[in-house]
Design a binder for these strands. Sequence first.
DNA 1: AATTTCAGCGTACAAGTGTACGCTTAATTT
DNA 2: AAATTAAGCGTACACTTGTACGCTGAAATT
Lengths: 203, 203
Amino acid sequence: MTVKQSREQQKQETRQNIINAAFQCLDAEKSLSSISLREIARVAGIAPTSFYRHFKDVDELGMTLVDEAGLMLRQLMRSARRRISEQSNAIDTSVDTFMEFIQDNTNVFRVLLREHTGTSADFRAAVQREIQHFIKELSDYILLRQQITQELADLQSEAMVMIVFSAGAQALDADAKQLLLISKKVKRQLLFVQLGVKTFKEK
Amino acid sequence: MTVKQSREQQKQETRQNIINAAFQCLDAEKSLSSISLREIARVAGIAPTSFYRHFKDVDELGMTLVDEAGLMLRQLMRSARRRISEQSNAIDTSVDTFMEFIQDNTNVFRVLLREHTGTSADFRAAVQREIQHFIKELSDYILLRQQITQELADLQSEAMVMIVFSAGAQALDADAKQLLLISKKVKRQLLFVQLGVKTFKEK
DNA sequence: AATTTCAGCGTACAAGTGTACGCTTAATTT
DNA sequence: AAATTAAGCGTACACTTGTACGCTGAAATT
């Protein structure tokens, strides 16, 4: 199976194995602070001490995971916006895309959600940055489509993201039936926010 | 210092010591799953094995803590509503009360926030129930003051609570200066939701 | 061809964990 | 007054953890 490879390629492959193993380990009942180096090494198929050839400690790996998760979220937003340009309703399409993401990348979203309120100040700050990034991109999009001030767009965007993320948290513990209700609910709540800002502006 | 007491009194006192010790331990970098029985016992001033005279394990203590934290939140709501009847603006008063609570009972709020997305399904469910309780009480209040349907009141209430809790999460890592900005921000976001529901109803 | 580099391994150890077990001792019941 | 109850303690043990240290063998460099 494994073909002859350069040393650098081999190393990168092992590094990716560790990252994948970590995401696999970070399920419904494991957080970055409760997970053990040895457990990750076991799943990655390496000796515990070999871990150090790639990361200083689990915290450094954690920051990598948060970065990677944030990257995926940004890609998600792009695909959502692509879908919007084809159909029309921005809110519905965005929520659907987001919910699909949670279904397909459960543990990735879980890391963001969990570490956002987790026990490491560094992780909390890192996730916060990723969320801010998420908010900013939505805000830019809103600014483009609605005729409101930057400030209002920022406020609207943040409120919407908070609502969506909270719904995401519920979705993680929900079955397929509940998921549909959550989607419907959050779409209407986002509509309220949008409508509220519009009304506020016109007042 | 300690006077002669009945056995039952003494036991309840020790139990409360354990609970207080746990809240004290559950600071910015400890969660219910990362905390150790021995650590709590140390702070509570008892032998590790004495813990079992009061709780089956840390999980059982955890449920007690979540219950207690939820209770405090309900009391908070009552005091907020009392304040509203004196002055007038419901949103501003509620947010101010909430932010004061976070300042005065940081670790209590932290438990709710952290275990809401934590590694124990039981804790997540327990916190979710407390939050639902919180949402329900706000919803009842909204229904009383605004002329809208039950369904709209529920949606509005939940959206508002999600926004407030998210702001609370930010507040935990913020200094006094940022705190004021967060308060201002969240008040306007809540206003958008309220206004949005009103506009939606009238459409 | 000889040398250097370095990813990965195995061993080893100290530290911290949950908890089983039996004892003590003071409050309570008989 | 004697017997019972039970909160709290100390000891002990089996585990898991992070990581220091030195070795191996193959890839890369000279």
